[in-house]
């Protein structure tokens, strides 16, 4: 059981950052799904819910997703559905249930950089940046490599860059964590391949397509080369050997769906 002494709905990000940096037991509140499972004794919970960050803004160049936007709002956004061909929905629909995704926030899902994260796996396959209060804009790739610190994730920015993207996942039950998550996008003839839940933080690699996808030998060699760039591990949902084998299956399925 966690405890929390104070709760503050801040009026500005400055106020939030000041509180956050003042005490290591002051935390930014997301959906609270993870926090309440801990046994932490917190000082102040900092709520950003009054800052208008629960929206998805869109212009011609892309989307700006506020950190307090729920996973469900992201999943059901009609424009993104069209723009990314259903990949956003595919990445989110398996996360526990609708009421969970209405409760969970984008910021709470992205900022901790959880290894099992579906959202991060998807975002890493897009042209995506995160806006941090202190550090400013950071590419999703660099953001993932960093560890969570005292900064505040304000928005997630996704560019509309005409890329095609698909999401594949292998789960033991439909609403469980992925044994392995996989997002693949293609732009200007280059693939971005992301594997999440390997079981470590989502990792992206950029590769040229296979020389001859129809040729089994070429395909196997290409897949081998791709998965060699990842490190797989063992946890209660699967062994590293199984995950490595499944990486090839999921990447193959994704490439087949991309149809290039």
């Amino acid at each position: 059981m966690y405890t929390m002494k104070n709760y503050v709905q801040v009026q500005s990000l400055e106020e939030a950052y000041e509180l956050r940096t003042k005490n290591k037991n002051n935390v930014i509140l997301g959906g609270n799904l993870w926090l309440k499972m801990t046994t932490r004794d917190l000082s102040t919970g900092i709520d950003l819910c009054n800052l208008g960050l629960d929206r998805i803004e869109e212009d011609e160049s892309g989307y700006a997703i506020g950190c307090m936007c729920s996973l469900r709002d992201l999943e059901t956004n009609v424009s993104m559905e069209t723009e990314f061909g259903g990949a956003v929905k595919d990445a989110l629909r398996h996360i526990v249930g609708v009421q969970f995704r209405n409760t969970a926030t984008v910021g709470g899902s992205v900022f901790p950089r959880f290894g099992f994260s579906d959202v991060l796996t998807l975002l890493a396959a897009l042209d995506c940046e995160v806006e941090l209060f202190n550090k400013g804009r950071v590419s999703i790739k660099d953001f993932i490599l960093d560890s969570p610190d005292h900064d505040i994730l304000v928005k997630v920015m996704i560019k509309k860059d005409k890329r095609k993207v698909v999401y594949e996942t292998l789960r033991m039950t439909e609403t469980d964590f992925g044994v392995l998550n996989c997002a693949v996008s293609v732009k200007d003839g280059k693939y971005t391949i992301v594997l999440g839940a390997a079981p470590r933080k989502a990792k992206m690699v950029e590769v040229d397509p296979c020389s001859n996808w129809e040729d089994k030998e070429a395909k196997d060699a290409w897949l081998e080369e791709v998965v060699n760039q990842y490190i797989f591990g063992t946890n209660m949902r699967g062994s590293k050997e199984y995950r490595r084998a499944m990486a090839k299956v999921l990447i193959t399925r994704a490439v087949d769906r991309l149809g290039v």
Binding site: M172, T173, E174, T175, D176, F177, M236
Partner: peptide, 23 residues
């Protein structure tokens, strides 16, 4: 599933997966 020290890892509905209506 247990750890080698005998701690039960599948000790909640996040880890012990009973079927949902789509399973």
């Amino acid at each position: 599933l247990y750890t080698d020290k005998g701690y039960l890892m599948t000790n909640n509905f996040m880890q012990y997966k009973i079927p949902t209506r789509i399973d």
